[in-house]
Design a protein around this nucleic acid. Structure first.
Length: 495
RNA sequence: GGCGGCAUAGCCAAGUAGCAAGGCGGCGGUCUGCAAAACCGCUAUUCGCCGGUGCAAAUCCGGCUGCCGCCUCCA
């Protein structure tokens, strides 16, 4: 595979070679003390696209995404909200997974939680103490940063630079202010686990090392997460893992740019964020995906309703093209030889350049509108699904009761106007339809029946009756567009 | 103070040495009972500013300005 990925560790775009099959990916997921926001979704989407692209190339993927469900912040929340930390964690995990499913984000294979891997965590801390990289002080265990010569390599920081600007709270117990906590003694009333150093809980970074080793082994292929995790989280993960095993930890480090809101980074600690729940109330999964994929994953992305509206418009170009193609050619088939495959593949292989890949899709649509072939439509559908958009047949699977009600009211209206012939014809068509359609096909069939009658009125210049039907359909969010004197199409008015 | 990233049309956004992808918006057209929609065409002689290297620079080098971030919890 010719995939190239930007590796934070080297600061370069490198050819990707997996260690073996499956490709092993670890994603730093949420610390679940508060609700997931748009930024978290962006990180999840990077993994989603990566998994889809590997899948397309014929690779198996083993993906892990962790939940850090016990840390200082969630304990604070427990005190504030007077709710058990486990409940808080579960709520936020539920919301997150619900949102991911709604957004058609591929699930990881496992979602391990820190609180459920104490044995591995304690074991890893013990190894670090045994090897002399960590020390215990009054029930706390710290990692000794200076023991590791290349500490800072990932975040391109040097220990001495860090020292100069150190805003790190000087802790009496630490040998060096930069040392970080592996295990933290519990205060009264805090959740704790038994350990050789007394009752306590893990520090922030250790769970990722412990859990990735447990499920992916000591060395794995790709570590993903938000750019804000590079330091200190990933630097520390890398340090402690390497210290414990003597082997390289993650081979490729991928970091996505953050999402900003009014020019500033979204961050749950400052409350400056948009919950994904809220976004999903306003925009569809496809729109949100388009909004994110329009920009390369490593770039900063500004969250703004205007951008989402723009994404919706951009998406509708694709949707309309596919709808029109379906009207012309019938169901769009699968394709094994998509057009412009080279261009699309080059874009995706170049560090998942979805922005460029979408450009290819639009070029293809233009071509499709000129040449009008089912092959191009099939290619567009192929690429769009590959990028994780949901390409559903519009309106087809919705219940048909509302349309049925319109059919009835139209019949009543016709009867009132004394058009009994037409009422009879409608009834005949209707029975015919019931016989031939299954439940999912009935709705479009009924709509088409209404449009057929309406076009008859249009030909006869009975515009008042034609508009009557159009208005009725609009009430159930179906917009009718007249293409010519006897062809009308409809589309959904929903976002 | 240290370290890092970004700056491309009205807006968003690819491109990182060889004639500036794409999207949104706008304008013009085709079509049309109306209304839309759709489609077609046009929409940056120039890439924050100043210098330098090259036959050739948005792209490389140096300097400057502006914005964002990390060094404390963060996707």
């Amino acid at each position: 595979m010719a995939l190239k990925l930007y590796n934070t560790l080297s600061g370069k775009t490198e050819n990707f070679q997996p260690l073996g099959d499956p490709v092993k990916i670890y994603t730093c997921g949420l610390t679940v003390q508060s609700e997931p926001h748009v930024g978290h979704i962006r990180a999840a989407l990077v993994r989603d696209i990566l998994m889809r692209w590997f899948g397309q190339a014929g690779y198996n993927v083993l993906a892990l995404e962790n939940f850090t469900d016990v840390d200082d912040k969630i304990i604070e929340k427990q005190k504030e909200q007077k709710r058990d930390w486990r409940m808080i964690a579960q709520d936020n995990i539920d919301t997150y997974l619900w949102a991911c499913d709604r957004l058609n984000i591929k699930r990881a294979n496992f979602y391990p939680r820190a609180s459920q891997h104490m044995e591995e965590i304690i074991d890893l801390v013990r190894r670090l103490i045994d090897k002399g990289f960590a020390y215990e002080k009054k029930g706390d265990v710290y990692f000794s940063v200076r023991m590791l010569p290349d500490y800072g390599k990932l975040s391109k920081k040097s220990i001495d630079d860090l020292m100069v600007g150190a805003r790190i709270a000087p802790t009496e117990a630490k040998d060096d202010p930069l040392d970080f906590t592996l295990w933290k003694a519990a205060k009264p009333g805090e959740p704790y686990w038994f350990s050789p150093w007394g009752n306590g809980r893990p520090g922030w970074h250790i769970e990722c090392s412990a859990m990735s080793m447990r499920y992916l082994g000591e060395t794995f292929d790709i570590h993903t997460g938000g750019e804000d995790l590079i330091f200190p989280h990933h630097e520390n993960e890398r340090a402690q893992s390497f210290a414990a095993t003597g082997k390289p930890f993650a081979r490729y480090w991928m970091h996505n740019g953050w999402v900003t809101l009014t020019g500033e980074k979204m961050s749950k600690s400052t409350g400056h964020y948009t919950p994904i729940k809220e976004v999903l109330q306003k925009y569809s999964a496809n729109v949100i995906r388009m909004f994110m994929l329009k920009t390369h994953y490593r770039k900063q992305l500004s969250y703004d309703d205007e951008r989402l509206d723009e994404a919706r418009a951009a998406l509708s170009t694709i949707k309309t093209y596919l709808d029109n193609a379906t009207n012309k050619f019938g169901e769009i088939c699968e394709t094994s030889k998509p057009a412009m495959l080279g261009e699309f593949t080059d874009a995706m292989d170049e560090d998942l350049n979805t922005s460029r890949a979408l450009g290819v899709v639009y070029e293809l649509i233009k071509k499709g509108n000129e040449e009008d072939t089912p092959e191009i439509a099939a290619s567009v559908k192929y690429y769009v699904s590959l990028l994780g958009f949901v390409v559903e047949k519009p309106l087809f699977s919705e219940p048909h009761k509302d349309v049925m009600a319109i059919v009835t009211s139209v019949r009543e209206r016709l009867a009132k106007e004394g058009m009994t012939d037409l009422v009879g014809e409608m009834a005949g068509n209707f029975l015919d339809m019931l016989e031939r359609s299954d439940a999912s096909g009935l709705r479009p069939a009924l709509i088409n029946l209404l449009l057929m009658i309406r076009n008859r009125f249009r030909r006869e210049k009975k515009y008042e009756l034609a508009d009557f039907i159009r208005k009725k359909l609009l009430k159930i969010n179906i917009i009718v567009d007249d293409q010519s004197i006897d062809v009308s199409t409809y589309r959904s008015n929903t976002k």
